[in-house]
């Protein structure tokens, strides 16, 4: 199943995420994804996430497709100009990869090679518009594409914990207007805050998938609180992880409760398991998803 089918089904959507390695062996990444076989509508393949140089998202997606998993191509604007971004969109479509998540991308200096040139020729909205243009048969310069235009299902992201929230929501509206057909959010740990966020977003007509990062330890939770913008892990969860004898079991328990709390306010969840895809399956089992 891909994103289009999942959206059209109207059912609760589950997606997950894997990261290509800093190296040329993708076996581990594929194994990670394969845990979720038959359970998810899409597997995001990150694009040099956190500005760390790695194998490409497109190659990861091609490999996922080869093993029969539904890839979501993540594309950021940090490393390529509009020519290269559009070219990659066409290349992806040529490989049958049409679910694309469009992001601006982290800044270069936050990664492992701060000396690299930050491109940002476009931002997420510009990239969505470019992809939409290709779907209509034209590139950004207005030149006509040869043959049938590609058909993408485009996604975007939003940070429900952003402060101030107003400009964040304004940009989300712009992304949907530009052609985003689904939304995946930054990690959230607070259903009440998420409900408030969704109320302010209003009816945007596309499914919003709440972002879930499974806690691996109390230390990881504290690290996120200190270092990830707009993400707040409540103290109660940190304490539970700290006291946990079996960290995995407690993390699964917390995640199940969290997703249950979020379900009334979202149309799906996007799991960002950071290597814990086998536990995502357990979470989904417990939720009956």
């Amino acid at each position: 199943m891909g994103m289009r089918e999942a959206i059209e089904s109207g059912k609760f959507i589950v997606t997950t995420e894997v990261a290509p390695p800093k190296g040329c062996h993708l076996d581990h990444m594929l194994q990670e994804a394969a845990y979720c076989r038959g359970r998810v509508a899409g597997v995001n393949v990150t694009d040099l996430q956190s500005s760390v140089m790695r194998a490409s998202s497109l190659v990861g997606c091609i490999k996922l497709k080869e093993i029969g998993m539904p890839p979501v191509l993540q594309m950021v604007c940090r490393d390529r100009n509009r020519l290269s971004l559009q070219s990659e969109l066409l290349s992806a479509a040529a490989m049958g990869i049409t679910d694309v998540l469009c992001l601006t991308g982290d800044y270069t200096t936050l990664g492992d090679d701060p000396h690299a040139k930050p491109v940002f020729d476009l931002d997420s909205v510009g990239l969505l518009k470019a992809a939409r243009g290709l779907m209509e048969g034209y590139d950004m310069a207005g030149q006509e594409l040869e043959g049938e235009p590609p058909q993408f299902t485009l996604g975007c992201v939003v940070n429900p914990g952003a402060d101030p929230l107003e400009p964040q929501i304004m940009k989300l509206h712009k992304k949907v207007e530009a052609g985003a057909q689904f939304v995946q959010t930054q990690a959230t740990y607070d259903p009440q805050q998420f409900a408030d966020f969704m109320r302010q977003v209003g009816d945007i007509g596309v499914p919003v998938l709440a972002g879930i990062v499974m806690l691996k330890s109390a230390g990881m939770a504290r690290f996120m609180n200190e270092n990830v913008a707009g993400v707040t892990v409540p103290d109660e969860m940190i304490q539970r992880m700290k006291k946990a004898k079996d960290k995995v079991a407690t993390s699964i328990e917390i995640t199940v409760e969290l997703v249950k709390g979020l379900m009334p306010y979202c149309q799906g969840v996007h799991m960002m398991p950071l290597g814990w895809n086998q536990h995502v399956v357990t979470v989904l089992d417990e939720l009956g998803l």
Binding site: C77, R78, T104, G105, D106, Y107, P118, F120, D123, S124, V125, G126, V157, V158, N159, A162, D163, P164, P167, Q168, M170, K171, K174, Q186, A229, G230
Partner: peptide, 16 residues
């Protein structure tokens, strides 16, 4: 804006 964003902010700002 380090990313020169004309349509709105990214998701990375914190407390403004």
């Amino acid at each position: 804006c380090p990313k020169g964003q004309l349509y709105g902010p990214c998701g990375g700002y914190n407390n403004g």
